[in-house]
Design a protein around this nucleic acid. Sequence first.
RNA 1: GCCAGUGUGGUGAAAUCGGUAGACACGAUGGACUCAAAAUCCAUUGCCGUUAAAAGCGUGUCGGUUCGAGUCCGACCACUGGUACCA
Length: 806
Amino acid sequence: MSAFVPSFNHKIIEKKWQDQWYESGVFNAKDFDQRPKYYNLVEFPYPSGAGMHVGHIRAYSSLEVLSRKRRMEGYNVLFPIGFDAFGLPTENYAIKNKVHPRIVTDNNIKVFTEQLKAAGFSFDFSRVVDTTQPDYYRWTQWIFLKMYDQGLVYRSKTFVNFCPDCKVVLSNEESQGGECDRCGNEVVQLKKDVWFLKITEYAAKLLDGLKDLESSSRIHTEQENWIGKSEGAFITFPIADNSHTLSVFTTRPDTIFGATFMVIAPEHPIIDEKASQIKNLDEIRQYQEATKRKTEFERIQLNKDKTGIKIEGLDAINPLTKKPIPIFISDYVVITYGTGAIMAVPGHDERDYEFAKKYQLPIIEVISGGDITEAAYTNTESGMLVNSGFMNGLSVELAKQSIIDYLVKTGIGTASVQFKMKDWAFNRQRYWGEPIPIIYCEDCGVVPVPYEDLPVTLPMVEHFEPTETGESPLAGIEAFTRCVCPKCQKPARRETDTMPQWAGSSWYFLRYMDPFNKHEFASKEKMHYWGKIDWYNGGMEHVTRHLIYSRFWNQFLYDQGLVVHQEPYKKRTAQGLILGEDGEKMSKSRGNIVNPMEIIDEFGADTLRVFILFIGDYEMPTPWNSAGVKGARRFLDKLWRLQEKLVKKDQFTPSLENIIHKTIKGVGEDIEAMKFNTAVSKLMIAVNEATASSEITDKDLETLVLLTYPFAPHISEEIWSNLGHSDSIVLHPWPVYDVSKLIEKQVEIVININGKIRDRMIVDFNTNEETLIDLALSSKKVVDHLAGQKPKKIIVIPNKLVNLVI
RNA sequence: GCCAGUGUGGUGAAAUCGGUAGACACGAUGGACUCAAAAUCCAUUGCCGUUAAAAGCGUGUCGGUUCGAGUCCGACCACUGGUACCA
């Protein structure tokens, strides 16, 4: 037996192995290598000044473990990292502290990189991507221009969410609840010229592509709901004097006989077109103005009651009943969806019902099964058509078919599919973003920057404070705005808006495959070699936006023949949030933030990694528990101390053989299933058993160390080297288990009487049913309980239980 | 409101197929070692009960299916996230 080995010093060994790994480049992926490839992607971080968060550790640990295991399994693993570094927090910090965002960003990236290395992540640091480098955003601009060429970029004047405090325009996503995402202040409505990407053109394809994406049902559902496909029909309603028509979209064309009025959005163009006929035009105009003034917040919070105005002098005709019906304007109908007009069927739509009750409009039952004097009846499963002419007696499903046939035949309408998803507002009035490569010429109008002139670089200036008008800071920089029209060579002006933060992250996974290419965003050969991303892990909060946006860009590039696969990701998973110890979201204001660097300093990176994976189900949110960190460290100390009673032998200790094989199987399977918490627990059980054993062999310890390596690589490398190996574990194959060694020799069987446990017994594995029954019936406790009664029925589950039913 | 998810000890959590509820870890209590502390080791630890046991109770609530339910079905309650009148 060897002499006492002191418990390990994490500061020394972690530094030692990190230096060795990062200097040797052992984790760098090799293009065109003969080994099979495996591409693991984690969402690249925004390098905030606060540095790394425990959430980052959790987010990266899953594919970190998988990457290390895959390398041991012989794969050429691409596990890249980069920085999504454009964005408002940096800009705000820069303004406040009078430092240029370039300097702030470079600093933050430096700190972040050091921290990622201190945690021992096996990223390929040789292909780091930074979205704020001209070499990178040149291609972001290039893809934007490709979209422009294909008619997927357009400019439109609309009301946008404007934060008077940050002086920036916000997308709907960034101003939820009428509050600015960044500063929390109230958002107002401002009329602006806005660039849009026509993502709606890809709605059907984005929905369709989901079937090739392996992910949990909640991820699928969130994407589906965001795209929001609904099938229905366009129906044309004539205006009573036959001078005009009003087109509606409805998902329930079958209820048309019950359409007793129409509602149009306040912004609907027919108001202006028929203004001369409208008798209460003043009142209508007032309502329109009131709607415009409302922020989204007010519409949501204060407008639970339906409001609306009847348009006097303008009636429509229900094309099926031929009866005249009134037309209302109301802000519960929105101009951006469908046609901005609906046929209201109060009997079978809750919103229409509420409106009809308020304005005392007729409610007609056209689907039987409910009580329309009480509420709208919206069940489409069991109802049957009534009061509906030729559709009477049909189910809703059949009636839909029947009415669409009729509408098409008579030219009144057509079948149609609509999507809830809106086009993507693609500009911000900020400095710290990719300049939009567009030039305005007085003669030629909007002119895209020629491809060969890219990148349009951000000027390195001293003043990047926002303007009072809500224009981009770039607008005040003459040297930037002044340019020459590429078409006519006359003086022209540059677009001064920049792209939203989502831009750079929409294609970064492609750049990783070929990060230094000066001629293309990535070469076809390399994209062909690396193929699809095998596994993509990130936050649940990005499942709707970033995931859809990046799939959109990839699909677009695919359609242009510029990438190899239509869908970029094979599999997508999402980690759960780490909450503060108080169970609340971690935030500065709550003062419950845990700094991972402090844990690394005190307990070591291995401890932090093991603990964060052990803390709970990877996909569920879980509170931080500082006391629990010690448990992870104790486990590593126990593993270390196994070296004290090492026996040189190339065989498993007989009493440990079974548990070791079970652990190889269990840990391997748990990693693949993202059950990292139970994988760690299985390692703990194995180490506990080895600790209890009087001696352990080289082979026992080697195997345990190989299994621990993906979780706690530094200590594993150190023990591995102590065991006399001169090579790194990463070059050593993942252990395999022997199925024949998994079987237990003896098992415990429970004896139930009427499903209640009354006794237990230990028997040989695979003892036959008759023997089990005999043994059960001879148990003293069972005999006492039966008190002479004969079981009516006996259920035997081999190796599990015997249930006596009396 | 709608959609999704989650409710299990003092705490974080386990529990492939419906078959021993609480693995593993934290904490707590008692003990060993120590002048003492830390570290380590041993024992106990769902509740109730008991000298000890037995019995009884127990996976948000109420009901159902089953020989047997944390797991399946129905209704409800609570919490978390997403969304905002999408026709």
